[in-house]
């Protein structure tokens, strides 16, 4: 089953975040727990880990700011 990656709400006050950098290339294999991208909020930069194992599909470009809930990728 594919796992959809949406921009997470990490803080009560968070409404958007910047996908600073993909740490794993589009189409590469990831293991649950691997850092897959860096998310910047107005507070800090956070490493976000893969919630599942599989092939990572990018669906949003890095360097851009997205609303919480935006689909940014998938692990298939």
């Amino acid at each position: 089953m594919a796992t959809t990656l949406t921009l997470p709400k990490l803080e009560m006050s968070m409404s958007e975040g910047t996908l600073a950098e993909w740490k794993v290339e589009d189409g590469a294999t990831v293991k649950e727990g691997d850092v897959i991208y860096v998310l910047e909020t107005n507070k800090t930069a956070r490493d976000i880990e893969a919630p599942a194992s599989g092939t990572l599909v990018h669906k949003a470009a890095s360097g851009e700011t997205y609303d919480v809930g935006t689909e940014i990728g998938e692990i298939v």
Binding site: T3, T4, L5, T6, L7, P8, K9, L10, M12, E32, I48, E49, P51, A52, V68, G69, E71
Partner: peptide
């Protein structure tokens, strides 16, 4: 934490 990071859950 995994569910929140993946955007699967949205709660505080």
């Amino acid at each position: 934490q995994a569910g929140l990071s993946a955007g699967k859950f949205m709660f505080t």
